[in-house]
């Protein structure tokens, strides 16, 4: 008797949908709907129309905040790179033990909440804090206050986001075959040329990953700029919160939120066209 293909095929096609359905429904209800509501409010509150967007895109205050946000994110990304690349390099060129210790430190920093690390910077940079104390001890009689400035919030953000950069670069660097470097050296590459022609291209994916991640998180950063930054130089997320909490300006806040979201998605989209999005967080 014949062994024919059973009609299992029909059931097999339904099965993944059944498994996926609860989550799909959930995300529709508690992700897409609230997100849609933000978009909705941006064009209906307080009146139907594009007034809010006009205000956000042309008003000097809002424009300045968005530009400021963009530049701060870029600055933080560059600083993270300046901190992360040398450290990742050192971790690959020191003893196993030291590399593990540094890795442990970075993982620990990574897992400590944003809030705790922000608070720690307030303690460090406070008027009665160790940094001022150290400056005073070595002879700066009356050091200027550094808390609640653009400097302090940028510094803290670099610290908070550096682990993303380091981990990304480190993991890529670790996979470089040492034989490749040796063979480049045998062909006469050394110093800066070795770095430029061999090391840099090989670690580029890690740099790209880390940079996009840091930049995107920084664009939407709320906690640290609000707590540590200068009140006069807000970033986008802070201003959105401000509009909602202080002025109950839902329409304007939503319009800004949508602009922020679109900018974020554009960055991710450009990235994903080149590398694929799932690699980013992987």
């Amino acid at each position: 008797m014949a062994v024919t293909v059973s009609n299992l095929a029909g059931r097999k096609n339904l099965w993944p949908w059944l498994l996926l359905a609860p989550l799909a429904l959930y995300l529709a209800l508690f992700f897409l709907v609230p997100l849609g509501q933000v978009a909705m409010m941006s064009v209906t509150e307080p009146r139907v129309g594009l007034d809010n967007y006009e205000k956000v895109l042309t008003g000097t205050l809002y424009r300045r905040v968005f530009i400021n946000t963009f530049f701060t994110a870029a600055l933080v990304t560059v600083c993270c790179l300046l901190v992360g690349y040398p450290l990742a390099y050192l971790m690959n060129h020191t003893t196993e033990r030291r590399a593990m210790a540094i890795l442990l430190l970075i993982t620990m920093s990574f897992w400590t909440s944003f809030l705790v690390r922000t608070y720690a910077w307030m303690v460090l940079l406070g008027n009665n804090g160790p940094v001022i104390w150290l400056l005073a001890t070595i002879g700066f009689a009356d050091p200027p206050g550094i808390l609640f400035t653009r400097f302090s919030s940028t510094l803290a953000m670099v610290h908070i986001l550096a682990p993303y950069m380091i981990m990304n670069i480190y993991s890529v660097m670790k996979k470089i075959d040492p034989a490749l470097i040796r063979s480049a050296e045998s062909m006469g590459a050394y110093g800066t040329s070795l770095f430029r022609h061999v090391y840099l291209p090989l670690t580029a994916p890690g740099i790209a990953n880390g940079s996009v991640l840091v930049f995107v998180i920084c664009l939407g950063f709320y906690v640290t700029p609000v707590l540590l930054g200068s009140p006069t130089e807000q970033m986008a997320a802070g201003l959105i919160g401000h509009q909602i909490e202080q002025f109950l300006a839902f329409g304007l806040g939503s319009a800004m939120a949508i602009v922020l979201l679109i900018v974020t998605l554009i960055v991710l989209w450009i990235y994903s066209r080149r590398f694929g999005l799932d690699r980013l967080y992987g």
Binding site: P16, L20, L23, A24, L27, F31, V33, P34, L35, Q37, V38, M41, V216, L219, G220, Y222, A236, A237, I240, G241, I244, F250, G253, S254, A257, I258, L260, L261, T264, L265, L268, L277, D278, Y281
Partner: peptide, 27 residues
Amino acid sequence: KGVANLMMMMPMAVPHIVMAVGYYSYF
């Protein structure tokens, strides 16, 4: 499948402040 995959990753791409505004009004 591709859409489903993207959908699952999306909440990570949206800044929390945007979701906060949405939940505040929706909830």
